[in-house]
Amino acid sequence: MLATVAVVVIAVVLIATAVAVVVSDNLVHSVFWLAAMLITTALLYVMLEAPFLAAIQVMLYTGGVITMMLFGVMLTQRDPGSRVPSASEAPGWAAPVALGLGATLLVAIWTTPELAALTPTPSGDAQKIGHMFLDRYLIAFEALSVLLLAGMIGAIVLARKGDA
């Protein structure tokens, strides 16, 4: 019962912060709302019995991605605190498209009988996840390291000053 209340409260906060990310007129505020949303998602991961993933989320996303995003905002705005036009010049069809997509997804979710039949199973702990990474999914894991290296080199080459 208490867990249900907690999940509902987290869900409301999650949606509120997500909307704030999208409609905020100040990009710096938007980035910090994104940080709040990612931490709230980490709380939801804890409620879904995935505490290891919650820790990864906080370290990698709120630690790494938010810092990079802030650097991005500071490097590309002449006045980082200034107002950016968002909803004021939005195309009129944006809201209907989004609402239509959302309605379609919700109908699909609530009319699929297979989903209702799913029951909670024990989520794996960090030990099980580690074994999966280094056993069955070893090739994918190594390919991911190569991808990260390629992304890093690509970003350096792109953003380097000089003959870029």
């Binding site: 999650l14 997500a18 990009l27 938007s30 991005g72 968002s86 909803a87 195309p91 498209v97 919700l106």
Partner: peptide, 19 residues
């Protein structure tokens, strides 16, 4: 799904690449 749709709305309305 609600989060995803919020993101779609943001992509359609934002003009700033970082947004």
């Amino acid at each position: 799904a609600v989060l995803f749709v919020t993101g779609v709305y943001g992509i359609l309305t934002r003009r700033n690449a970082i947004g």
